[in-house]
Nucleic acid binder design. Sequence first.
DNA 1: GTCTATACAAGGATAGAC
DNA 2: GTCTATCCTTGTATAGAC
Lengths: 217, 217
Amino acid sequence: MVSTEARSISNRPSSDAIAQRILASAKDEFAQFGYEGARMQRVADRAGVPKPNIHYHYKSKRRLYLAVLETTIESWNRAFDDVDPEANPAEVLEAFIRDKLSQAQQDPAASRVFANEMIQGAPNLNTYLHTDMQAWLQTRTAVIRQWMDQNKMQKVDPERLIFLIWAATQHYADFQVQALALLNRAQFNEQVATETADFLVSFILRGCGLSSERTNT
Amino acid sequence: MVSTEARSISNRPSSDAIAQRILASAKDEFAQFGYEGARMQRVADRAGVPKPNIHYHYKSKRRLYLAVLETTIESWNRAFDDVDPEANPAEVLEAFIRDKLSQAQQDPAASRVFANEMIQGAPNLNTYLHTDMQAWLQTRTAVIRQWMDQNKMQKVDPERLIFLIWAATQHYADFQVQALALLNRAQFNEQVATETADFLVSFILRGCGLSSERTNT
DNA sequence: GTCTATACAAGGATAGAC
DNA sequence: GTCTATCCTTGTATAGAC
């Protein structure tokens, strides 16, 4: 196998570059139609290559899908990946919410690929859910519990708090067509994203007892 | 065409009963795999009838899917369908949240069918989103705005409040496999549903400034 | 490495016996 | 109304020329 570096100095598009184009097209296709509904022909059309070329770069439809899943998971929760228990809970949660929403706007396909896999029953991610993701969640909820023990925030179920943040932010990727229709907006641009992020941050922080505002009356 | 009543008195399973069985099987199939991923053979197997029988009761795969979509939408937001502006906001919102979560537990397939249609870009519900659903949302947000004007609750974006409730509740249907894995539960039973409903109600009411509890310190 | 041509299975849908 | 057999299209995947 030739290294990426060796090929990248050649004068025509490297094989890796084409593999990447196929991967990106596949992500869109799987995001929209799910694994069973996805068609290799449409992936080829989207990528602008003949259908058999896909099989040269990826052995099968399933391998291609697994490659897409892998790239999707990598950037999943990066904004909450490193948390200092000494940090300000409000700031940490705000950064997490804004980052998740920013991802939902900039890469909705990633969110939809994951959503399809979950709806389908996670046939390819069941192990991941019970190992890596489980571990990720436990270290984060441990920090949140620490904050609650120190009376830095309202006592709430930490797992379900994370679920709510995931659901509320990913909603704008997975249900984008619905949100735009009901908000009377043509596209999910920066302005809509900012309005949404501001709402979610202030609403969720208030739910966590982290708001500077006081309630009415 | 023979009326339902005329046929229901016959001694063997009425044709309508079989049509209903097929419809229920189709709902599960479309829920799991989406329209393009759904297979008529699997619908037939689930319903326990030969494949061609489906085409006798439903002209095509698309017609079958549209029939499933229709039953899905009917019960969508019934708990918030009739709202008295004079009612207590906290009680109305709590009933809405609990009803949505109850539906998510008892009929997750309905939620997943809808989710698949949205992820796919709402090719069959675009008109619905811009007409009936739009209208439904406007009358509810009007009531919420009234409550806010009367200082009965925190001023928040009413549309996005509804979105958050939808997302947070439907999450437990669409991402059930993930939630169960991360909560270390085997199934989404009454107990898990109650715990979840209690969390959501208290968290969201606090976000709306409707909580009786005071924040810490 | 990339394409044309094609193998083989599975898809939705229908004809026609019962 | 229900089934068997089958049509035709499309699906994934591969062989083999270039």
